[in-house]
Every structure is written in structure tokens, then in C-alpha cells.
Design a protein around this nucleic acid. Structure first.
Length: 617
DNA sequence: CCCCCCCC
């Protein structure tokens, strides 16, 4: 059994060339007696070198590592890949090589002697585990594996994914499948075929593996997401970063010789997935089509929208989810198909996505899931739990900074206020906020004028004049139409615990309140006015979360003003009167969006409010 | 050797 802990001193490092995912560092470590120059830092720990926290002469505790067999100029070398390391004392405070370091244990001829006596390290001896054989090579030299099964039976140490490269082909990895694509076929000028791909992870890193044609047939069924496999003899090639954001410079392809054997033993030490989260704010500076991993809490969730793709004619379903992180940055993520239909955002789940694609819309940034993206809802990650805590105490009640521009649709993102608070804080007045969220109940909707006949032309909502000859005139378009479109403009009285507020509900929102389509309501009104009134009446006494937009209505006022401007004195008087009017009566409210009451979020909001009040007193 | 991934 390999030890899990070791301590020693770092006596230098060397950059091993650069690549798209950065440098790889080779370290010289010693325990004061022996040294090992065949030590590499897992690339995800490179920041320790670049930020100089793992400097020369540092005393370190190596908490986790993997041993990898590497072919070095014809001879096998054991390479220690450091996966988790803690700096106990910075190199600047040590300033020299400790102990009398003579031999390098990575040299095979020294293996036997190094193995025969385990020497405790001289460095930081007070803090040592009972035994330290981190740099101890295996007793028997590694046999050349003739087959994967034989290798496994002989207990041949597996290579870690992070150490794979095209320059070495004798390896076995033990890895978990974190993702498996469906089988896809292709046909282009270079030929046709089918393929699938899977993502493999171990403690050291991750890599994508693709199987074409025969290999697709041979291996597809045996691969199960979440299971651990021994895999050997695949081809390695540079990863195409355009389609693959796994943290590896290479990707691999299954070949004729490839072998995959399921690993049935417990493998809890092998992670299930590896995320490399970017903060939502950082996505602003990223390129369109880049793939990123993100973590956020689903603050806003749209309904499923169904539409037909212009290019393919296929019917598409999508759902937009607004996710926020602890910086209170928000971005819209689009889910597609069944994932969109099945997604339940009602409890504001934490969402982790691996490989979401960055999109641009209306000058904002958005994210979209693509074929290779992985979505996890409420993942059991420390960052996810932390994020949930932040959301409960702070995030749910604050307005987020959204990187995405949406086309209406109405997101429930904004400061909460009661009607009384909105009035007291002069919402809608110049230099005051104009949007707020509140839980309120519909008191009544004025049914009489809720419906009007509007211009049928796209985008024009102007009320038409019935010419009584079967034609309808739109004064805005300067045209007569043989038809019209019903539209809703419903004056709605809302009540909350602090008071009441008149607000206008337009088509979409009014339809939600009345629970009927606009056209349907129009037809009902034509057919049976009593039933229509009854239907509108049924909207009363139902509670929702509303987003209201307040604004000072002075359009009509200025029009009046223009007409009477020839009489300066009267104008002045009226102006005074109007100012009074504007301040007290002409504040118009519009229902910007409506959502069913999510009691969890609502109670979170109330708790936050109670805490604020408690702190003030 | 694929690499399309949709809409406003």
C-alpha cells in the first residue's frame, strides 16, 4: 500500500516546456537523506509555482500523489506526480538545502538499497507519520505488461491520466467515466461513420476518449457513466480545445489494440467528475463559443418555450435559467430538449455545468448547453454548499448584475419592497429605483376595458377603429385591415400586507392572471359577456410574486400643456396643479412579470428582512 | 476520422 502522507523539502523546480494548458513543473524533492528528481507537479497545482508559494527550499507535506511508470530513453522510470501538497514553511525562511542529500531514488539502480531501509526524514520530524516511504520505489521492477488483464492481476501500478502523452504507449490508466455521449453518425466529403466519446477522470486529471466505427460497436455498451475501468493502448493526440475544455493537452482515440476492463473493486479515491469553475463575472471577458465550467444558483427560471428551428425545421424546446454566484453576477443558461422540460428550478438548486458554451446576444453574454456539456443539479461540492448559504442569507434578496440581455420574458430579479415601501421611497421618480418585487394578491381586475381590438400587423399594438364596414383602421399604420387582434390591457388592483396598488397587466401577464388566452377571452366576450365577466372575476384572491415597474406618467399632461401654452398664466397654474398630480396620482405601475409563489425563496427573503430589522434595532 | 447543438 502506498503511503498517503509524506514530508520533505523542495529543493528546486524546472519548467518542462509549455502548452496550451500551461507549463508542467518538475520538482526536486528530498527528505533530508534521499532526493527524488523525478517528481512532477500535477498541472492543476501550477499556481503554487507561479504565485511563488511553493518556492525553492520550502518544507512541504505531500498529502497525495500518484506513481507513474514512464519510459525514459529506453529505461523505465518511476515518476511521482504530486496531487496535493501543503507548504509548511516557505523556502525563503529555510534558505538552504537541508540534510546531506546524496542519492536520487528515482534512479533504478538505487531502488533496492532505498527500499531496504526506510529512513525517517530529518525535516520537521515532530510532525511525521510513523513511516514515510513516499519516495520508496516498489520492491520488484515493473514487468512489461503483455495484456491488460495480466497487468491488473500482477498489480502493475497504473499510470495517472495527467502523465499520459503521445510519446509513451505502455500505460494503463484506472479511471472513472464521468460522461458518455450517445452514438452519433456523420457523413461528409471525407467519409462517414459513427462514433461516441467519453470523459475519463482520475485523481490526477481528466481526458476525453473517442471511439470510432468498430470501436464504437465494441465498447459502447460496456461503458457505464460513473463506473471505473482499466484502460490501455489508446492513441493520444493533441486535444482540440475548440470542442474540448477538459484540462488536458491531449485527447485519446480507441484503437484496434485498445483494452478496457471494468474495475469492480471499491474506487472511492477516484473522483466522479472534475470541474474547473470560472466565475460568472469572468465570462464577460471570454470569447464566444468558448467552453467553460460554471457554478451558480438558479435564481430565475423561465417556462419551457417551444419553437421551430429556422435552419433545420425541427421543433425545439428550451428553458432559460438565470444563475448567480457569490459575486452576485448573473448569466442566463439555456437548457434544451428533455433537460429543459425536466428541469425544476422551484427550489433554487445549485447548478454545476461542465463545458457550457458561451454565446452572445444583444451585446450580452449567455451560456448554452451543447452535446458534450454536463449538468449537475445540487452537486455535493463544498463550493456548492457555500453558495447555497450565501444565497439564503444574501443573494436571494439582492438584485444581481446580469451579463445577459433578455428579450422581456421577465425575470424575478430585483430588490424586494412592499407597496408602502415603494411609495415611501418614491419608486419610479427620477433618481429612484423603478422596479421592485413583492408578493401580492389580486384584489380585482377591471373587466370592462380589459380587452381591446388592436392592429393585426406585427409589432403594432395600436387600438383600431371599427369602420363598421368590416374594416378596421389603424391610425398608426395609416391602413385599413379586414381583421384585428385582441389584446389585453387590464387594470389590476393588487394588495399586499402594507397596502394596495393599481397596476396594468398586459397580454402575457394578464393571461396568466385570468388563466385564459387573449383570443379565447375575446371570443367569450363576443359570445357571452356574463361568462366573460365571471372568468375575469375568477382571477381575484390569488397570490403571486410580482415584479412591478413604476414610472411617472406625464405623456398626456405634456400634451395638454402644449395645447394651452398660449395662455402663460393659466399654463403656470395648471403646471402647479399638474406637479401635484404627478407627485401624488400619476405614478403608473405596470406588471413586468408574474411567478407563482415559491415559498422557499419567499421565506428566505422574509428571514433576510427580519435579520435586517433586528440588526437595525 | 467528429466537431452540428438549435431561439430571441
Amino acid at each position: 500500500m502506498l503511503p498517503r502522507l509524506s514530508e520533505g523539502a523542495l529543493d528546486g523546480h524546472k519548467k518542462l516546456g509549455s502548452s496550451s494548458s500551461g507549463e508542467r513543473y518538475r520538482l526536486l524533492v528530498s527528505d533530508g537523506v534521499k532526493s527524488n528528481s523525478f517528481t512532477m507537479l500535477a498541472t492543476q497545482l501550477n499556481h503554487l509555482i507561479t504565485n511563488n508559494s511553493l518556492s525553492e527550499h520550502s518544507i512541504v507535506q505531500i498529502k497525495r500523489y500518484a506513481i507513474s511508470m514512464v519510459n525514459n530513453g529506453g529505461s523505465q522510470k518511476r515518476v511521482m506526480v504530486i496531487l496535493n501538497i501543503e507548504v509548511l514553511k516557505p523556502g525563503s525562511e529555510v534558505g538552504k538545502v537541508l540534510g546531506n542529500v546524496s542519492s536520487d531514488v528515482s534512479k533504478p539502480e538505487e531502488s533496492a538499497s532505498a527500499n531496504s531501509s526506510v529512513t525517517p526524514p530529518v525535516v520537521n520530524a515532530s510532525n511525521l507519520p510513523p513511516q514515510n516511504n513516499a519516495s520508496k520505489p516498489a520492491a520488484k521492477p515493473a514487468a512489461k505488461p503483455s495484456s491488460l488483464n495480466e497487468s491488473i492481476n500482477n498489480g502493475i501500478a497504473s499510470t495517472c491520466i495527467d502523465a499520459l502523452s503521445p510519446y509513451q504507449n505502455r500505460w494503463v490508466i484506472k479511471a472513472r467515466v464521468s460522461f458518455k455521449s450517445p452514438i452519433r453518425t456523420w457523413s461528409n466529403s471525407r467519409g462517414e461513420g459513427k462514433l461516441f466519446s467519453m470523459d475519463l477522470v482520475d485523481e490526477s486529471g481528466e481526458i476525453r476518449c473517442t471511439g470510432f466505427r468498430d470501436q464504437c460497436d465494441k465498447f459502447y455498451d460496456m461503458i457505464e457513466i460513473g463506473k471505473v475501468y482499466y484502460i490501455s493502448r489508446c492513441q493520444l493526440k493533441p486535444a482540440n480545445k475548440q470542442y474540448n475544455n477538459l484540462r488536458n493537452d491531449y485527447e485519446m482515440t480507441l484503437s484496434q489494440d485498445s483494452e478496457i476492463v471494468v474495475c469492480n473493486e471499491e474506487s472511492q479515491d477516484i473522483p466522479t467528475i472534475q470541474f474547473n469553475f470560472a466565475t460568472i463575472g469572468s465570462l464577460e471577458g471570454k470569447q464566444k463559443d468558448e467552453l467553460v465550467d460554471v457554478l451558480g444558483i438558479a435564481k430565475t427560471v423561465s417556462d419551457v418555450q417551444t419553437f421551430t428551428a429556422k435552419t433545420t425545421g425541427r421543433e425545439l424546446k428550451k428553458r432559460d435559467v438565470g444563475i448567480v454566484d457569490e459575486n452576485n453576477d448573473m448569466i442566463t443558461v439555456t437548457l434544451w430538449g428533455n433537460q429543459a422540460v425536466d428541469f425544476d428550478g422551484s427550489s433554487n438548486p445549485v447548478i454545476a455545468i461542465k463545458g457550457a458554451k458561451i454565446g452572445e446576444f444583444m451585446g450580452g453574454k449567455s451560456l448554452s448547453l451543447v452535446g458534450s456539456s454536463m449538468l449537475q443539479v445540487d452537486p455535493d461540492l463544498p463550493q456548492a454548499h457555500k453558495l447555497r448559504g450565501w444565497f439564503k442569507s444574501v443573494g436571494s434578496s439582492e438584485e444581481s448584475r446580469s451579463l445577459s440581455k433578455t428579450t422581456g420574458g421577465g425575470s424575478m430579479n430585483g430588490p424586494w419592497a412592499t407597496f408602502k415601501e415603494a411609495q415611501e421611497n418614491r419608486y419610479g421618480h427620477p433618481d429612484c429605483p423603478n422596479m421592485f418585487i413583492t408578493k401580492a394578491t389580486v384584489h380585482l381586475i377591471k373587466a370592462e376595458n380589459a380587452l381591446y381590438k388592436s392592429c393585426p400587423s406585427d409589432g403594432c399594438k395600436k387600438k383600431v377603429v371599427d369602420q363598421s364596414n368590416g374594416m378596421y383602421k389603424c391610425e398608426k399604420c395609416q391602413r385599413d385591415y379586414p381583421n384585428f387582434t385582441y389584446r389585453l390591457l387590464a387594470s389590476t388592483n393588487l394588495v399586499d400586507s402594507s397596502g394596495n396598488q393599481w397596476a396594468t397587466a398586459f397580454n402575457e401577464e394578464a393571461e396568466m392572471l385570468v388563466n385564459a388566452g387573449t383570443q379565447e377571452l375575446g371570443e367569450l366576450k363576443e359570445k357571452n359577456n356574463d361568462e366573460y365577466m365571471e372568468k375575469i372575476g375568477q382571477a381575484a384572491f390569488k397570490s403571486y410574486i410580482f415584479k412591478l415597474r413604476m414610472r411617472l406618467e406625464n405623456y398626456n399632461v405634456s400634451k395638454i400643456l402644449n395645447r394651452i401654452s398660449f395662455l402663460p398664466l393659466i399654463c403656470l397654474l395648471i403646471n402647479l396643479f399638474i406637479n401635484k398630480l404627478q407627485d401624488e396620482n400619476r405614478l403608473k405601475a405596470t406588471i413586468a412579470s408574474i411567478q407563482p409563489v415559491n415559498y422557499k425563496t419567499y421565506i428566505d427573503h422574509l428571514f433576510t428582512k427580519i435579520k435586517t430589522i433586528a440588526n437595525v434595532k
